[in-house]
Design a protein around this nucleic acid. Sequence first.
DNA 1: CAATGTGAATATATTCACAGCT
DNA 2: AGCTGTGAATATATTCACATTG
Lengths: 230, 230
Amino acid sequence: MPNSPRRKIPEAALIRLPMYLRLLGEVTAQGVTHISSDQLAELAAVNAAKVRKDLSYLGSYGVRGVGYEVAFLAYQIQRELGVNHEWPIVIVGAGNLGQALANYGGFVERGFGLVGVFDTDPSKIGTQVGGICVQHLDELSEVVQTRGVSIGVLATPAATAQEAVNRLVRAGVGSILNFVPIVLSVPRGVHISKVDLAGELQILSYYEQQKVNSLSHIQGTTTSSRAVSA
Amino acid sequence: MPNSPRRKIPEAALIRLPMYLRLLGEVTAQGVTHISSDQLAELAAVNAAKVRKDLSYLGSYGVRGVGYEVAFLAYQIQRELGVNHEWPIVIVGAGNLGQALANYGGFVERGFGLVGVFDTDPSKIGTQVGGICVQHLDELSEVVQTRGVSIGVLATPAATAQEAVNRLVRAGVGSILNFVPIVLSVPRGVHISKVDLAGELQILSYYEQQKVNSLSHIQGTTTSSRAVSA
DNA sequence: CAATGTGAATATATTCACAGCT
DNA sequence: AGCTGTGAATATATTCACATTG
């Protein structure tokens, strides 16, 4: 076991690994075989020291005075992320967002094969979504077991999300990508990563609001609301 | 100007405000009028001190010994986030993801009205997506100006994403929600928030991989790859 | 007296700066 | 000479713990 990872990668660093991996893929396509932390930092729009520190959690895979071998580094990141294994996924919830995600090519493109789409609405069951026949949620467990699914994508209405999570967990799914903007409870050991689409917009709204505020400050107008209507 | 905010809210706290706001809405619907940091922390699944610290950046809106008045606190968060103003949005890219986002009810539900969907593909232009007629990207500037759009959602293919960003910025958009997994360059002052859907899965893949590794450790098997095929 | 608001303590993340290799 | 890897320094975030207050 020559260089197994030093154990846990800090969350902040982990989040950047997929970006580095993608960038390495891009430069490979351009024929680049070696890259320095400065160059990778430029592409990633981050500090070079951060790149080196992040990569150091994987091991010492660079060469002093030279940089990193792109293919080798990419392999090490893949190995650490576990994406050189297959991770079939299921989507629970075949509404607008669920269908969208099923049709979204980006998952398959980066190695996540969709093996099931589930809903409880009889009018949805049997329809084709993303090349997959929508099945009743009761079939979830069967598919998760037989296909060895450990990651589920949650895109149900808010009201049924917790029940869907319970079923995913009971079926054996160990990680969930949650698009439903509610706080879900999961047993210890189950990872749940949340994407709140409207929440992201609200954060952007804050930044835009700040700009408006600072402008009205300069102009000496009050901050009381006038701009409520479009 | 009685209690204008103390200036910039730390990023880490800002990210949680939309969650608090949503939770306050939920408890309001249940008839709750007052809430303590302990209770809100329970709902949000975070530490109570964190809730108080986060809320303290907005001002002192709690009452010692009592807690926070839900409606008043919600209003203050809304005001701080700027979501009591209208923020019409546009979507650039009417492919799978763009259509999905256009049809996704969650944006409108939380106050973000969709006023334009843009693409350059002639076969897409003129089709109805999310109740909106897809327009050519050349029309972007016109719509942004007349509708006062300051937030754009980016869902183009990777190859055309930077050009689309340039157009958004030139048209006057100040913040961008980016679903395209590439690093984009924007001028100073333009905010760009990134959602890398496949990247999220890769992070989950890491956690699942960790579980596999720790299991094989216990069983004394090597970590060398065998589980590559499904 | 119950719960806020906040300094102080701790933990985590980022950046600097340079010793150590190739 | 050039670039990594990393301790030390700094910055940011979280949590503790309690004085303060309605």
